[in-house]
Design a protein around this nucleic acid. Structure first.
Lengths: 346, 346
DNA sequence: CTGTTAGCGCGTTCAG
DNA sequence: CTGAACGCGCTAACAG
C-alpha cells in the first residue's frame, strides 16, 4: 500500500493546523471560518484525500462495522437474511463483515474472536455453538449481539425469534383440514431447537386430531448446503416409502430444500404431486414458486428478519438501550399448489 | 464499548515493559527469554486479553480484510462465488467485508470508497459501474483488485474470466446436435458484455449451421433478484409464443433463473418440457437439478471462480506479484433432462 | 475562531 | 535479552 495523504499533509498545503483540517473534514460541529472551510475542502478534493478510518476508529473507539455469522451463505434462507441486514446497515453507514460457520462451532468461535479484535460494534448471529462462554465474555466486554434463527439462551442477547412450533402446527392443520389423515413428517436431525419445535407443532396438531404422528428423521449431518438437504429429502422419502404399511397421502418436510428432494424422489418413483401425494415445505423460499408444482409452505419472513435484527442492533448501538424483550415473528401459510384437497371429489 | 485491556495493562501485571509484551503476543521473531515469554502468555490468558487490531493495523499498515462487491447475495450465482472467496480468505486469516451493489453504480462506488477508507488490502468485485475513475484511482494508490464475472477493461486489474461466447456456442451446438433447427434465445437486456458474448456465441453456432438466429430481449431491468429473472423468463416466453410463426422447438435462456421462468410459462400454456419444447439454461446452478425436469445448462464453476479469484488476490498481496495474465475459465455442458433429442424416433 | 498538545493501542527503532 | 521513546492517522481537550 502506497503511503497516502494524511490530514497533516493537507494541513500543510492549506497552511493551517491538522486540527482544523480534522474539524472540517469530519463534519465536526466545531466552528471554523467559512473561508478556511472552503479552502480545506477544495484542497482535500483536489488532492484526492481519503481519510484513514483506522486512525479515526482507534481514536473514537467506534468502528462502523458489524459482524454477521451464519452457517452458509449459499443457503437461500440465510442469504436473504443477510441481504436484509446489509441493507439496514448500509443505510446507517455501517458495513458488514461476513463469516460462514459451516455449522462448525470452532470456526464460529474463531470468527467471532477475529471480529471482536477488529472492534466490530455488534454482531448478528445464527449461532450453532453449544459453548457460549466466549460469546458471553465478549458481551460482558460490551459487545452487542442479536441472535437469529437459533435461540441463544442468554441474557443480554436480544433475540429475533420465530414461532417454529406454531409453524409446524399450521402446516399440519392445513393438511388435516384438506382431509389428510396419514401425514408423515420428514426432517433433518432433531438436534436443533428450531427443528424440534416444528416437530412438536406437527405432533400437537396430529394428536389434537386423533391422528398418529409419523416422524422420519435423518442421521446426523455433515455439511450444510442446499444440495445436502435436497439429497436428504430424497433419502428420507425412499426410507418412508420402503417402510411398508399404508403410504401417507401427505408429506411435511422440515424445510423447502428438503421438500424439493421429497417431490423429486416421489416423481422418480412414479408418484405425482399433489395427485398421489401432497407435499408441504417450510421456509417459503421464492424458489418454491418456480418449481412444478409450486410448493405450499410455511413462510418465514427472512428478509424482514434480517432487517429487523439489524435495526434492533443499531438501536442498541446508538441508544444504548437493550430492548427488554425479544421479538417472535409469526408464521404464515403460503398456499400454493402442492397440496391436494381430499375432501373435494374424494 | 467498555475499555478493554491493552498491552500496557498486562505489561504492568507482568512487571515488564509493553514492548516485551508486544513482542511475545505478536509472535515477533525478536528474542525474549523463555521465562518472561511464559509469564506474559500466562497472564494474558488469565486476563482474557484480546488485542485491538485497529492499533496493530494502524501501525503495520495492513488490515487482514478484503472487500467483496457483488450485485446481490440472494442470487445463487454470486452467493456461491462469495462462499469460495470467503473460504480461501479464511484459510489465510483474512476476513471479508461484503457489499451488495444492487446493480447501482452509485452504491458500488460508495461501498468501494468505504472499504478503501477501512484499509481493505484488496477487492474482489463484479463491477457494474461504467465509470471506473474512482476504482482506477484506488488502484493507483495501491489497492489490489481482482475482477470477476463482469470484465473490467483496465490494466492492473486481474481478471477471472469466463468464456461466455463459447458457452453460448456450446449450448446452441448442443441443441442443433439434437436436431433442433428453430431455436430461440431469450435474454435479459444485452447491456452487459457477458450477455452480449453469450448471444454472439449462440448466433455464431446458428449461422454456422445455416440457421436463423432469433433473439428475444427484455427491456432494461430495475432490480436484480432471482424472482425478477424468473418473471422475465415468463414474460419473454409469452412474447415469444405470441409472435406467431412457427413455434421454436427449443429455447435457450441467458441464465438458469430465467430458464425456470421459461419452463414455468411453457407449462402454464400447456406445453411440456422437453416433449413439446426443449429448454437449456446457463449457469449450471445446483438448484437446476432439483426441478422437474432437471435443467440442462452450461456450467459456470462459480465456487471455483470465487476460490480462484481470492487465491489470486492473496498472491498479489503477499508476493506483490501481479499475475501477468488473466485466467479464462471454460464452460462445460451440463446435460440433464430438459432437452429432447429430435433425431431419435423423429 | 485557530493552533498546540496529548493520547487511542500497537509495533519498532535504538540504547543499554 | 529488555525497556524507553517515538509514531501510525486521527480527534479531543485546552489554550490563545
Amino acid at each position: 500500500m502506497k503511503k497516502s495523504l494524511t490530514i497533516h499533509d493537507i494541513a500543510k498545503m492549506a497552511e493551517v493546523s491538522s486540527a482544523t483540517v480534522s474539524r472540517v473534514l469530519s463534519n465536526s460541529s466545531y466552528p471554523v471560518s467559512p473561508e478556511l472551510r472552503a479552502k480545506i475542502l477544495r484542497i482535500a478534493k483536489e488532492a484526492n484525500y481519503v481519510p484513514n478510518m483506522l486512525g479515526k476508529q482507534l481514536k473514537t473507539r467506534t468502528s462502523m462495522t458489524i459482524g454477521v455469522v451464519i452457517p452458509s451463505i449459499t443457503n437461500l434462507f440465510y442469504s436473504s437474511i443477510i441481504l436484509g441486514v446489509e441493507e439496514i446497515a448500509r443505510k446507517s453507514n455501517y458495513q458488514v463483515l461476513l463469516c460462514n460457520s459451516f455449522q462448525d462451532p470452532e470456526l464460529e468461535d474463531k470468527a467471532i474472536h477475529a471480529m471482536f479484535e477488529k472492534q466490530v460494534r455488534g454482531l448478528v448471529i445464527s449461532s450453532i455453538s453449544s459453548d457460549k462462554k466466549q460469546l458471553k465474555h465478549f458481551i460482558d466486554m460490551g459487545l452487542n449481539v442479536v441472535a437469529l434463527d437459533q435461540k441463544v439462551e442468554m441474557e443480554d442477547v436480544t433475540q429475533v425469534d420465530f414461532d417454529y412450533r406454531k409453524g409446524g402446527y399450521i402446516a399440519a392443520r392445513h393438511l388435516i383440514g384438506k382431509g389428510h389423515r396419514n401425514i408423515a413428517y420428514v426432517t433433518a436431525p432433531l438436534d436443533r431447537p428450531s427443528r424440534k419445535s416444528i416437530c412438536e407443532g406437527y405432533a400437537a396438531a396430529m394428536d389434537e386430531a386423533g391422528l398418529q404422528p409419523s416422524v422420519v428423521e435423518a442421521g446426523s449431518e455433515t455439511t450444510y448446503s442446499g444440495a445436502y438437504e435436497f439429497e436428504n429429502g430424497k433419502a428420507l422419502t425412499r426410507k418412508l416409502l420402503a417402510e411398508g404399511g399404508d403410504r401417507p397421502t401427505a408429506v411435511f418436510a422440515c424445510n423447502d430444500m428438503t421438500a424439493f428432494g421429497v417431490v423429486n424422489e416421489l416423481a422418480a418413483q412414479g408418484l405425482k404431486v399433489p395427485d398421489d401425494v401432497s407435499v408441504i415445505g417450510f421456509d417459503g423460499l421464492d424458489i418454491g414458486q418456480m418449481i412444478t408444482p409450486p410448493l405450499t409452505s410455511v413462510l418465514q419472513p427472512t428478509y424482514e428478519m434480517g432487517r429487523l435484527a439489524c435495526t434492533m442492533l443499531l438501536d442498541m448501538l446508538t441508544g444504548g438501550k437493550k430492548p427488554d424483550v425479544g421479538i417472535v415473528l409469526q408464521p404464515r401459510l403460503l398456499e400454493r399448489e402442492s397440496v391436494a384437497d381430499l375432501l373435494v371429489g374424494g
